[in-house]
Design a protein around this nucleic acid. Structure first.
Length: 949
RNA sequence: GCGCAGGUGUUGAAACUGGUAGACAAGCAUCCUUGAGGUGGAUGUGCCCUUACGGGUGUGGAGGUUCAAGUCCUCUCCUGCGCACCA
């Protein structure tokens, strides 16, 4: 009988041994081996490892270990992202120095990390607040500065009043600071910016080639927010002109006013010419007072007309149409200065926001797009037609009943548009002729459809585009029908029907018009893409076709705009990487020359945040600057956003001690791009985007060859508290991993986290204390089965063993550690039944277990099985295809698609044989006896389905 | 509103190309064991009917394709995430 499983003894022992043996030291090059780079997001040294860290690091460790056993030189590095705000907060709270606090935390956490038993190569550790590291952060910043990728600009910035610093757009979540939740204010301030927008297209397009899941790609795409549209110029009555950005140039004929953002530069210029100057000034003042959040959440739109100023619709002007060409100009804060051109053409009929605004201020609404159904008929000669949904005061709809060679047909009143007549004129005429009603109002063009209009009289290659209008009867005044003789013979009767009855009867009618009319009636009034109406010579084009044609027609241009803004990196805080810039006495910025890097963070600073940069209070920094650069020179006193530090750390792991370069070209070639990057979903539009930008910027300058840093990306899910809520101190549902590890051991915790569900799934998993115990039980059972090892080479478990090898291998490749573990469990269950396993078989199982539970595997491998070399240096088992085949298989027997029984037959049995066995089965025979077998469906080794009459 | 993921027992979840739905765990129930108080073992466990044999039903809902659908198609409801007065 083997000794009791004591995780405390085992885990400590092997962690020490591995370190002594240098087991996880990973050189850049190993002859005969390919490199594999597994990266996880390094951690912030908050002072204590939580369950999230375990999930983040120990499960990917299984993958890195697996790759090592698969023969790769597998790199799995770890470090600390150690600059940042929490250090300052904690330092203030405890009256300590941020540096001391941070470095003490790192020491403590590194020991906690060791208790995980992960295969980190600690020799490559990277600490972003070390001068040896941030020297290169500064060096790269200078490279960006020299290459016009970094610049200082006065912009609107997000200001967090609690943390007293600027935030990047990416760090503002729903108008609030992502660190402390305080509502963010807008401020005008100078800050250092990085030109991420220069790569907006590349950052969007290059996503296509990455092996990431769509959710992450889509999140980045929508964050970048590329939108393709047109810039169109409107002439103002003041003589100025204003460019608007629109994605809907096809609706240009529907413009009924133009809106400028209150901050639009033209507004100031026009101020002296407007008749209501005071009112306009007042509105601009009010807008300034509103926070960004207020503006976003405004329930109702507001705005002021610039009285006396009008804009000319270029479409009308050039199309030679006279009516409606002058439209009013407004300012309104629903138009944002920072997006597009800061000015829009308003089309209330086809834009919800414009519609709301137009309704409120009584501006005209003009429909120019109608819904289209059916296929477009290309290259056919066109005729236009109209028909009407006429509603009376009771809301009933008029359907005409016609007699035709084909029988009784139903349709709505309507007909063709004549030469020299526009669509609405034709509509009124046709209604009058066919129904006699004259007192009516056109409400809306419901839509349009096309159909073949070919016949010998009319000629071929003809199509009819028929517009369907909603028309309201104002009174029942009726002048009687005016029908031609032919029409008289057809129109029999008028039916007044409910909406649904009308649709039903039209749908059943044996003519395409009636059917198409019914389909259109069923649709909601749709403001999106469709077919142009009321647009002069563009009538009948689809929205898609019209966009470019109309833009070109009015001399506009097709453009792209982006939601993404440049990345503001200035922080008015102490504990960060100093921006390596000095100003000459005239105030011009100069990069600190390379020989003075690292440009050290001064230590003689009272770091209490007060809204100004703490570095401004450092005597040492100012003296240093004057000493090096001369009298009157001043240092930049802002520090960098910590996301800068983490934008390139994965390079430094590859060449951590290099004093001449941030990472040698050779080292880059060894490991970049990263094969797999595991991390948190919260970084999708922050770190993940910033670091992609960083690599593209480095590449542009010629400092790296790669275009994308991460070949694959897996976002892990969240571990919730046992109550199903996010772990938080206030809820009292926080699991302390140290405590659990002390109780059940690191191997159990690792495996529990891997077993909980597929890594990278979108669901979140609650911590289940019983589940932990279940894994512990399993490890003990694995441990105890060593008692069943026998010297003779028993083969009885071979089939299952090789199936297990295959399953575990395939599952780990797909990050499905949960099913990999369950496969091992199934095997161990079987061993317990057999009570007999050969040493060779057992060795294979220990290898399969070793990436998942490295300590207990090593203990069994070396102490029980008596190996001298570590199991973690072994080759991964290879399954034997010939052993996987079962000698006998269970085949499911179905009768008429319903599963009725299982029959056991030799592997690869023929259909006839399986059928004969199945027929003998009572549970089958009772369903087929006396019935005629019509058909047999047979899938070898899987199923036989017997179809009877 | 737009986009993306997802919806399967009491719970975490399995089910590769359509082919025995619920593997593996956890929970629960009954029993056995034990030095009781988070780590022993056996059996059972989707739901309904049946003493059993067995039958019916079942993967958010409604249709469809197919010999066969959790899986494919159409529509629809719900949940989570991203974006959003973005023109």
């Amino acid at each position: 009988m083997m000794k009791k499983y004591d995780h405390k003894d085992i885990e400590k022992k092997w962690q020490d041994r591995w370190e002594e043996e240098g087991l996880y030291k990973t050189p850049n090059k190993v002859p005969g081996k390919d490199n594999y780079y597994t990266l996880v997001e390094f951690s912030y040294p908050s002072g204590n490892l939580h369950v999230g860290h375990w999930y983040a690091f120990s499960v990917p460790d299984m993958f890195a270990r697996y790759k090592r056993m698969r023969g790769y030189n597998s790199l799995y590095p770890m470090g600390f992202d150690s600059f940042g705000l929490p250090a300052e907060r904690a330092a203030i709270l405890h009256g300590k120095n941020p540096k001391d606090w941070t470095y003490k935390n790192m020491e403590y956490m590194q020991n906690q990390l060791r208790s995980m038993g992960a295969s980190f190569d600690w020799d490559r550790r990277v600490i972003t607040s070390d001068p040896e590291y941030y020297r290169w952060t500064q060096w790269m910043f200078n490279q960006f500065y020299k290459n016009d990728l970094a610049y200082k600009a006065n912009t609107k910035v997000n200001w967090c009043p609690t943390d007293k610093t600027i935030l990047a757009n990416e760090q503002v979540i729903d108008g609030k600071c992502d660190r402390c939740g305080t509502e963010v204010e807008q401020k005008d301030q100078e800050q250092w910016m990085l030109k991420i927008t220069e790569f907006a297209d590349a950052l969007t397009d290059d996503l296509d080639g990455l092996d990431w899941n769509d959710a992450i790609k889509e999140a980045q795409r929508s964050w970048i927010g590329r939108s393709e549209g047109s810039e169109i110029s409107f002439k103002l009555s003041s003589g100025d002109s204003v460019d608007v950005f629109t994605t809907r140039a096809d609706t240009l004929f529907g413009v009924t006013y133009v809106v400028l953002a209150p901050e639009h530069p033209l507004v100031n210029k026009l101020l002296d010419q407007v008749e209501n100057k005071q009112e306009v000034e007042k509105y601009i003042e009010e807008t300034k007072k509103k926070s960004e959040l207020d503006r976003q959440q405004a329930k109702e739109k507001t705005g002021v007309e610039l009285k006396g100023i009008t804009a000319t619709n270029p479409a009308y002007r050039q199309a030679g149409l006279q009516n409606d060409e002058e439209v009013p100009v407004w300012i309104a804060d629903y138009v944002l200065a920072g997006y597009g051109t800061g000015a829009v053409m308003a089309v209330p009929a086809h834009d919800e926001r414009d519609f709301e605004f137009a309704n409120k201020y009584g501006l005209p609404i003009k429909q120019v797009i109608a819904l289209q159904i059916g296929e477009r008929i290309i290259n056919a000669k066109e005729r236009l037609g109209v028909s009407a949904i006429i509603r009376n005061s009771q809301g009933k709809i008029l359907v005409q009943q016609n007699e035709h060679q084909r029988g009784i047909l139903h349709s709505l009143p309507g007909g063709g548009v004549e030469e020299g007549e526009n669509v609405e004129e034709a509509l009124i005429r046709e209604i009058k002729e066919e129904t006699g009603y004259t007192d009516l109002e056109i409400v809306f063009c419901k839509g349009a459809y096309e159909y073949n209009f070919n016949s010998p009289e009319r000629g071929y290659d003809r199509k009819l585009t028929e517009f369907l209008y909603e028309v309201k009867l104002i009174s029942d005044k009726n002048e009687g029908r005016h029908l031609t003789d032919k029409e008289k013979s057809i129109i029999k009767d008028d039916l007044w029907l409910d909406h649904n009855e009308a649709i039903k009867i039209l749908k059943q009618s044996n003519n395409f018009c009636g059917y198409a009319e019914a389909i259109l009636m069923e649709r909601k009034n749709n403001y999106l893409d469709g077919i142009l109406v009321n647009s002069g010579k563009f009538d009948g084009l689809t929205s898609q076709e019209a966009r470019e044609k109309i833009t070109e027609f009015v001399g506009g241009k097709m453009v792209k705009t982006y939601r993404l803004r440049d990345w503001g990196i200035s922080r008015q805080r102490y504990w960060g990487c100093p921006i390596p810039i000095v100003y000459d006495p005239e105030g011009n910025a100069h990069a600190v020359p390379d020989e003075h890097l690292p440009w050290l963070l001064p230590e003689d600073v009272d770091h209490t945040p007060d809204g100004t940069a703490p570095l401004a209070r450092s005597k040492e920094l100012f003296e240093r600057t004057e000493k090096i650069f001369g009298k009157g020179w001043k240092p930049e006193v802002e520090t960098m956003d910590t996301f800068v530090d983490s934008s390139w750390y994965f390079y430094r792991y590859l060449d951590p001690k290099n004093e001449k370069e941030f990472c040698s070209t050779d080292s880059q070639k060894d490991f970049m791009p990263i094969d797999i990057y595991f991390g948190g979903a919260e970084h999708t539009t922050m770190h993940l985007l910033y670091s992609r930008f960083w690599v593209k910027a480095l590449r542009k300058i010629g400092l790296t060859d790669i275009n994308e840093p991460y070949t694959r990306r897996i976002n892990r899910s969240l571990i919730l508290g046992p109550d199903g809520n996010k772990m938080s101190k206030s809820k009292g549902n926080v699991i302390d991993p140290d405590e659990v590890v002390g109780f059940v051991g690191a191997d159990t915790v690792r495996m529990y986290l891997a077993f909980i569900g597929p890594y990278g799934a979108t669901s979140h998993y609650p911590w289940d204390p019983n589940g932990v115990v279940g894994i512990r039980r399993f490890i003990e059972r694995f441990w105890k089965t060593t008692d069943f090892i026998v010297e003779d080479d028993t083969k009885s478990l071979d089939t299952l063993l090789h199936k297990t090898i295959k399953k575990v291998t395939d599952d780990i490749e797909r990050y499905k550690f949960n099913t990999a573990i369950s496969a091992i469990m199934i095997f161990i269950n079987e061993v317990e039944k057999e009570k007999k396993i050969s040493k060779e078989q057992y060795s294979t199982m220990v290898k399969l277990l070793s990436p998942l539970a490295p300590h207990v595997s090593e203990e069994i491998w070396r102490e029980v099985l008596g190996n001298s070399k570590s199991v973690h240096l072994e080759d991964w088992p290879v399954y034997d295809e010939s052993l996987i085949k079962e000698e006998e298989v269970n085949i499911s027997v179905s009768v008429n698609g319903k599963s009725r029984s299982l029959v056991k037959v030799p592997f690869d049995s023929e259909e006839e044989f399986v059928l004969s066995v199945a027929k003998e089965d009572q549970n089958v025979s009772k369903w087929i006896d006396g019935k005629n077998i019509k058909k047999i469906i047979f899938v070898p080794n899987k199923i036989i389905n017997i179809i009877t009459d």
